[in-house]
């Protein structure tokens, strides 16, 4: 228990240092916040346009309801929240891992008396990315006002839980890809690959239907579980607690745990294979 508290204190120090650094270059911080929101606002305009022409994403049938405008906005808001958390806490750090491996800078981190993966993953908190978290929460509130629907306490608790699962799955995928730099030397393409894979998780999973869609949906649910990242929490909140969601909800917890374990294993394997560069 004492160890957890100690790690938490270390994390708080990282967070504070990052905040001090961000506040030193305040103009830069503001520009970063605005630009990261601008990109999401452009996406929002695109979705507004879509709902100018259609009523639902996906056919709206009794047993399989489509995503209406505000339901989809809640979905998009969830996607914003998850991505903002990922960017704030992990993205910059994991991105740096590839450089650390290539340049041999990892040596200095290995020397520190602390868990290497913890230190690498949380060294820096990108506070400006939290602007998108705020944007996501506002959009979520706005959607619920229009849906005239108040989620139950249970749903909110499950939502938080599944957002954490989603972040865990994304994080695992990212750190596993970054770790593979040890074997590949250079992996710019691999990192692009992460971006392209996650584009599949941007929309409700129901859109993947038909002879090509079904296998794709299964692949990105069970093999690389990026489809459950946004879909499950969004569904928890918008779609009430339908019975048919329970298997998927249970699976998501398993998938998150398995992803973290697998990425931890890949990371350790990468460390074992790491040969310091240049020194």
């Amino acid at each position: 228990m004492g160890l957890t508290a100690a790690y938490f204190r270390v994390f708080l120090t990282f967070a504070r240092n990052s905040l001090v650094r961000d506040m030193t270059f305040r103009g830069n911080f503001i520009i970063d916040s605005i630009t990261s929101m601008a990109w999401m606002l452009l996406n929002l305009i695109f979705y507004l346009l879509i709902f100018h022409y259609t009523d639902f994403i996906g056919a709206n049938t009794a047993e399989n309801p489509g995503w209406g405008r505000y339901e989809f906005f809640a979905f998009f808001a969830t996607s914003l929240v998850i991505n903002a958390l990922l960017q704030a806490f992990f993205m910059t750090n994991v991105d740096e891992l590839t450089d650390l491996i290539r340049t041999g800078g990892l040596d200095f981190i290995l020397l520190k008396p602390i868990d290497t993966q913890f230190l690498i993953s949380l060294r820096r908190v990108e506070w400006s990315s939290l602007s998108n978290l705020a944007l996501g929460l506002v959009l979520l509130g706005y959607s619920f006002v229009h849906l005239a629907y108040i989620p139950e306490v249970v749903q909110v608790v499950l939502y938080v839980l599944y957002v954490i699962c989603g972040v865990a799955i994304y994080y695992s995928l990212m750190i596993a890809l970054a770790s593979s730099t040890v074997w590949m030397g250079r992996n710019q393409t691999l990192y692009d690959f992460w971006f392209y894979i996650t584009t599949f998780s941007r929309y409700p999973m129901e859109i993947y239907t038909g002879p090509w869609g079904q296998p794709l949906r299964s692949f990105f649910t069970f093999i690389i579980p990026v489809l459950v990242v946004v879909n499950v929490p969004a569904r928890m909140l918008v779609r009430l607690l339908e019975k048919q969601n329970w298997p998927l909800a249970g699976f998501t917890i398993l998938a998150a745990a398995a992803s973290v374990a697998a990425s931890r294993w890949v990371f350790q394997l990468a460390l074992a294979n790491y040969r310091s560069a240049s020194s």
Partner: peptide, 28 residues
């Protein structure tokens, strides 16, 4: 690197194909 990168750039189109299909199916 080039050829691989080029093929990968088409991946988002796959999502677009399914998204727009869902949009057209969603018109009441």
């Amino acid at each position: 690197d080039f050829a691989l990168g080029t093929l990968m750039r088409f991946l988002p189109i796959v999502t677009q194909i399914f998204l727009w299909d869902a949009i057209f199916r969603g018109m009441t």
